Simulated scan of single mutants.
Amino acid sequence: MTAPTERAERADAARNRLRILDAARRLLAADGFAELSLDAVAKEAGVGVGTVYRRFQHRPGLVYALIEDNEARFQASFARYCATDGAPSARDRLRAFLHGMADLVEDNRALLLLAEASAPAGRYRSAPFRRHHEQILGMVAELAPGVDAAYLADLLLMPYTPGLFDFQRTERGWDVARIKRGLDTLIAGIAATAER
C-alpha cells in the first residue's frame, strides 16, 4: 500500500518543481536576477521556503535548474520540428537548430552569464554543450561529408558563448536577426563545400 503514496509524493514534488521554476521565471522577467532569492521564489510559487531550499539548496542550483529546464524545452521543440512531414534536410535542420539556439541564449542571457561567471569553462564540460556538439556534428557531417565536422561543430557553437552573445547584443547593438543571418552565412559556406 505504500506504492500509491510514493507515486503521489513524486507527482506532488514534480508539480512543486514546475511551480517553483515558473515562479522564478516570473520574478526574473519582472525584477531581473539581482532580486531573485529562494525566499521570494517560494512566496511567488506558493510553497514553503523549505521546499525550495531542499530541492535547489542555493540560488546557483535554481539557476542551473532553470537552464536545464529551458534546454529540455528547446530539445523537445527541435525534435518536433525534425519529426514533421517531409523530413527536413540536414541543412534545414542545422539552420533550425542554430536559430533555435540563438533564441534560447537570448531568452536566457542573464542566467547563462551568471553560469559563465561562476565557472568560465564549465559550459564546455556540461551535458547540454556535449549534446549540442554531437547534434551539430551529425548534421554537419550529413550536410558536407568529408569536412572536419567536429571542428565545425565547435566553431558553430562559439557564437553562443554567453559573454560574446551579450557583447554583440549590448555593446555592438546587433539584434538576434543579424546573428541568425551570420549563422546562415556559415551554413551556406559549409553546404558549398559539399557541392564542390
Rank of each mutant, 00 (worst) to 15 (best):
A30E: 14
T51D: 07
S89A: 03
A115H: 08
A121L: 14
R10M: 11
A3S: 13
G189Y: 03
R55K: 11
F74R: 13
S37R: 07
E106G: 10
L36Y: 12
M158K: 13
L18E: 15
L137Y: 15
A150W: 05
G163Y: 08
D85Y: 03
F74A: 12
R15C: 05
E134V: 04
I20Y: 01
T161F: 03
D166H: 11
A40I: 05
L36V: 07
I136L: 14
R73M: 13
A117M: 02
R15V: 10
V63Y: 10
L21N: 04
V49Y: 07
A117R: 05
T84L: 10
V176F: 04
D92V: 00
R131T: 11
D154T: 06
A117I: 02
E106A: 14
G122W: 09
T5D: 12
L98P: 01
Q57I: 13
E6D: 08
V52A: 00
A188C: 04
F33M: 09
E68G: 11
V41N: 04
G122R: 06
S118F: 07
A72T: 09
R10E: 15
L155P: 12
R7G: 01
E68M: 08
E142H: 01
F74Q: 11
S126A: 11
N16E: 10
G146M: 04
A144S: 15
L111S: 09
A8P: 11
D107R: 15
F74K: 06
S126C: 11
L62K: 02
A127N: 07
E142I: 01
D154Y: 00
R26F: 04
L183M: 06
F78A: 03
H132L: 06
H99K: 02
R54M: 04
T161E: 15
R10I: 05
R19S: 12
E195M: 10
V63L: 06
R15F: 11
V47L: 07
L156H: 05
A90E: 00
P159W: 06
R181I: 08
R172H: 13
A153V: 07
D154S: 03
G122A: 13
D154G: 05
R95G: 01
G46S: 02
Y160A: 10
A72D: 13
Y64S: 04
G138K: 01
A117Y: 08
L27Y: 14
A11Y: 11
R131H: 10
